[in-house]
Simulated assay, not measured.
Amino acid sequence: MLELAAIVPVGEKSFYANAAERILRSLTENYATWEQPEHEAILLHGTGSGTSFIDVSLMYGDYYYIEAVTKLNGWKHRIF
Results as ranks from 00 to 15, higher is better:
residue 1 M to Q: 14
residue 1 M to I: 12
residue 2 L to W: 11
residue 4 L to N: 02
residue 5 A to W: 00
residue 5 A to H: 01
residue 6 A to H: 10
residue 6 A to R: 15
residue 6 A to Q: 13
residue 7 I to L: 06
residue 7 I to C: 11
residue 8 V to M: 10
residue 8 V to S: 07
residue 8 V to Y: 09
residue 8 V to C: 12
residue 9 P to C: 02
residue 9 P to I: 07
residue 9 P to E: 09
residue 10 V to E: 15
residue 10 V to N: 12
residue 10 V to M: 10
residue 10 V to Q: 14
residue 10 V to S: 11
residue 10 V to K: 12
residue 10 V to Y: 07
residue 11 G to C: 08
residue 11 G to E: 12
residue 12 E to D: 15
residue 12 E to P: 09
residue 14 S to D: 15
residue 14 S to W: 04
residue 14 S to R: 06
residue 15 F to M: 06
residue 15 F to D: 08
residue 15 F to G: 07
residue 16 Y to K: 02
residue 16 Y to D: 09
residue 16 Y to T: 03
residue 17 A to S: 04
residue 17 A to P: 01
residue 18 N to W: 02
residue 18 N to F: 05
residue 19 A to C: 13
residue 19 A to K: 14
residue 20 A to L: 00
residue 21 E to N: 04
residue 21 E to V: 02
residue 22 R to A: 10
residue 23 I to L: 14
residue 23 I to N: 06
residue 26 S to D: 04
residue 26 S to C: 01
residue 27 L to Y: 04
residue 27 L to P: 00
residue 28 T to G: 05
residue 29 E to W: 01
residue 29 E to M: 04
residue 30 N to L: 11
residue 30 N to I: 09
residue 31 Y to E: 03
residue 31 Y to V: 00
residue 31 Y to D: 01
residue 31 Y to L: 07
residue 32 A to P: 00
residue 32 A to E: 00
residue 34 W to E: 13
residue 35 E to F: 06
residue 35 E to H: 10
residue 35 E to Q: 11
residue 36 Q to V: 00
residue 36 Q to R: 00
residue 36 Q to I: 00
residue 38 E to N: 09
residue 38 E to G: 08
residue 39 H to M: 06
residue 40 E to L: 15
residue 41 A to R: 13
residue 41 A to P: 02
residue 41 A to E: 13
residue 41 A to V: 03
residue 41 A to I: 03
residue 42 I to S: 00
residue 42 I to P: 01
residue 43 L to H: 01
residue 43 L to P: 01
residue 44 L to N: 05
residue 45 H to W: 03
residue 45 H to M: 03
residue 45 H to Y: 13
residue 46 G to Q: 06
residue 46 G to W: 05
residue 47 T to E: 14
residue 47 T to F: 11
residue 50 G to K: 12
residue 51 T to E: 15
residue 51 T to N: 15
residue 51 T to H: 11
residue 52 S to M: 12
residue 52 S to N: 14
residue 52 S to V: 13
residue 54 I to Q: 15
residue 55 D to L: 04
residue 55 D to F: 03
residue 56 V to A: 09
residue 56 V to W: 05
residue 56 V to C: 08
residue 57 S to L: 01
residue 57 S to C: 06
residue 58 L to T: 03
residue 59 M to W: 06
residue 59 M to Y: 13
residue 59 M to S: 15
residue 59 M to F: 08
residue 60 Y to C: 06
residue 61 G to N: 04
residue 61 G to A: 03
residue 63 Y to L: 09
residue 63 Y to N: 05
residue 63 Y to Q: 04
residue 64 Y to K: 02
residue 64 Y to E: 05
residue 64 Y to N: 05
residue 65 Y to I: 00
residue 65 Y to D: 02
residue 66 I to G: 08
residue 66 I to E: 03
residue 67 E to G: 04
residue 67 E to P: 05
residue 67 E to Y: 05
residue 68 A to M: 01
residue 68 A to C: 00
residue 68 A to F: 03
residue 68 A to N: 01
residue 69 V to M: 13
residue 70 T to F: 01
residue 71 K to L: 06
residue 71 K to I: 07
residue 72 L to D: 05
residue 72 L to S: 04
residue 72 L to A: 13
residue 72 L to M: 11
residue 73 N to L: 08
residue 73 N to D: 08
residue 73 N to A: 14
residue 73 N to C: 09
residue 74 G to E: 07
residue 74 G to D: 05
residue 76 K to H: 10
residue 76 K to E: 14
residue 77 H to P: 07
residue 77 H to R: 15
residue 77 H to G: 11
residue 77 H to N: 11
residue 78 R to N: 14
residue 78 R to T: 09
residue 79 I to L: 14
residue 79 I to M: 12
residue 80 F to T: 07
